[in-house]
Nucleic acid binder design. Sequence first.
DNA 1: CTATTATTGATAATCATTATCAGTTTCCTA
DNA 2: TAGGAAACTGATAATGATTATCAATAATAG
Lengths: 141, 141
Amino acid sequence: MNSIKEKLKDSNYRITGQRAAILEVMMDNRGKHLSAEEVLYKAREKMPNIGMATVYRTLDKLASIEVLYKTMFDEGRYRYELCDEGMHQHHHIICLGCGNITEMEDDLLTILEQKIESKGYEIIDHDLKFYAYCPECRYNK
Amino acid sequence: MNSIKEKLKDSNYRITGQRAAILEVMMDNRGKHLSAEEVLYKAREKMPNIGMATVYRTLDKLASIEVLYKTMFDEGRYRYELCDEGMHQHHHIICLGCGNITEMEDDLLTILEQKIESKGYEIIDHDLKFYAYCPECRYNK
DNA sequence: CTATTATTGATAATCATTATCAGTTTCCTA
DNA sequence: TAGGAAACTGATAATGATTATCAATAATAG
Ligand SMILES: [Zn+2]
Ligand SMILES: [Zn+2]
Ligand SMILES: [Zn+2]
Ligand SMILES: [Zn+2]
């Protein structure tokens, strides 16, 4: 519902030059899943002296106010992407050949969630990943 | 389909004392999700001099032949559990209050997988996690 | 029995992330 | 508008999980 600007305003975080640069990087890369290191290098193109601690701090802050989504794709490091404006986060298909990450929308999970909530749980979020071979990698296996 | 013994036999890995101890630990803790460190301590009760490198190596080997399942629950470390004998891995519900992990079976995902396969992907595995408050934690929030 | 190979445990190295801290910037208000 | 509190920054050190190295040991095959 809330736009990024509203979320930032509500958060009471100062929009410093560094934070704006990092947010710009994330917006320039909508749909991609960037590691903190990748964000650091891209942000340094806009602001050469930005430090890595600032990148980590900012990414975590932006994730905490749901401007970014922080996920671990089983490679031992977190990746960040802009949140969907809609309610639910999309699902990820990770190619075991080339490593590309594609996305899909679907609301089948709400059925599962209702099942779980009927047992007394309060569901906050979910995370669904498919490990697969993409059409090209499948062909070249 | 294959039993653990068959998988081990097919793998051509030697069943050393250390590996047997680690496998025993995993079988003693069926349904639990253990970190490498937890496995190390439990294995040392059976074999006091076992080293941590051996634990990591063995857990990875057992995961590679699908005797164990290796997952990251977003806490920055891997956890291991015995694989289900059936085809599909169960789903996980992670409590944001107490950290307990419970499991659920469901085959709704096969519908989604068919949808993805119809686009040319070959699906190997999936991983579905729900982040929630369990009934007790929800009550005590 | 001996040579080859796999396995082990101690240790060091690596890698992503987090903590520390002194210096800087921003904000608030008197 | 000055001055002090609070937030923010970047360099660096520390942490914690995992992996690599390597010499010693154990299993295996001929
Ligand atoms: Zn691919
Ligand atoms: Zn995504
Ligand atoms: Zn709980
Ligand atoms: Zn499980």
